[in-house]
Nucleic acid binder design. Structure first.
Lengths: 184, 184
DNA sequence: GTCTATACAAAGATAGAC
DNA sequence: GTCTATCTTTGTATAGAC
């Protein structure tokens, strides 16, 4: 199929963004991982590295958003608890050298990263909006809901960093243990 | 003075790690910012980029640790509150394209980053240990203290990411608002 | 639409003069 | 201890055949 290669390139880019960051993601590695040829990447992504990175961040953002939309929203506590349970496997990947592809494109803003920052910003916003709506449905006020949602995403991002460093899920588990009581 | 140049190189490296990440930090920029000559960098840091990055992460880690050691420890709430107040200006730098130099060296672990990961790990540990001790003195149990300390550092790191992306302190302020009640 | 080959720039690293 | 000059590798990007 024609789009198979393009898809694998994005897939590879996501993985490389997580492990090496934006500046560390090279076309050489993307092509090696996706099995494509050198020139093909510019056929699918005329905008070069920036466009590929944006597509990768976008795909990652959509996957997470879709994931968040499935969380239960009966009470604030069950929502927060279900959130942490569901992201735990994702953070586990960070403990093995991974990370968040969306967060990755926010670093190395030298030059072209203007549109990448915007992509990441709208990704985080969409996640927080999704959770915020659910917290509202669970009974929190508009402002409390947004604060709670922001805290969840903040802890998630921080846990990515600490768990990648510690190569363990311990930081995540400890942060969650300290944080969960907030939600009743 | 002989060590003046070396010092400025580390200083520049810290700033570049924060803004561009490990892979994005180039000697060209370090030298341009520190005013040194091309070869001099290998005189002071024979281990090359890895050694310079380690020195930079180390310096940043020590500054933060020294900072944390000055926080009050009468109650858990005043400690957490003072912590967030004191790191707010640091996160503000992230909102303008900055970040955490220690977190930066945890990305791009391709090849040499083994010792860099270890450096970052001991940095985060030292921060958590420091806060944990203060939470203990404030009356928390050993385990509660460590959980609380881990949460603070996790929120800090997550806020770096979200605030750099949003180019605002709003994510930090919201996360703190949702998080602070946990501490009584 | 996919490939090979190559141009061009930037990076890390080293050698040797001063 | 600091400088200039240079080697090697890697990376982005383009041209053109199939």
């Amino acid at each position: 199929m024609a789009t198979g290669v393009r898809d694998r390139m994005i897939e590879s880019a996501v993985e490389l963004l997580q492990r090496r960051g934006l500046a560390g993601m090279s076309f050489t590695e993307v092509l090696a991982a996706s099995g494509g040829a050198r020139g093909a990447i510019y056929h699918h992504f005329p905008g070069g590295k920036e466009q590929l990175a944006r597509a990768a961040a976008d795909r990652n953002a959509r996957m997470v958003l879709d994931h968040l939309s499935r969380l239960p929203e009966d009470t604030a506590h069950t929502l927060a608890s279900a959130f942490f349970d569901s992201v735990r496997p994702v953070v586990a990947a960070s403990a093995q050298g991974g990370g968040c592809a969306v967060a990755a494109v926010t670093v190395d803003s030298g030059g072209s990263a203007g549109t990448l920052l915007a992509t990441a910003a709208s990704a985080f916003d969409s996640w927080i909006d999704q959770l915020s709506g659910k917290f509202s449905n669970a009974g929190l006020s508009r402002d409390e809901a947004r604060n709670a949602a922001t805290l969840l995403i903040t802890v998630l991002q921080g846990a990515h960093v600490l768990c990648r460093t510690a190569q363990t899920l311990e930081p995540f588990d400890r942060a969650v243990a300290a944080c969960l009581p907030t939600f009743g």
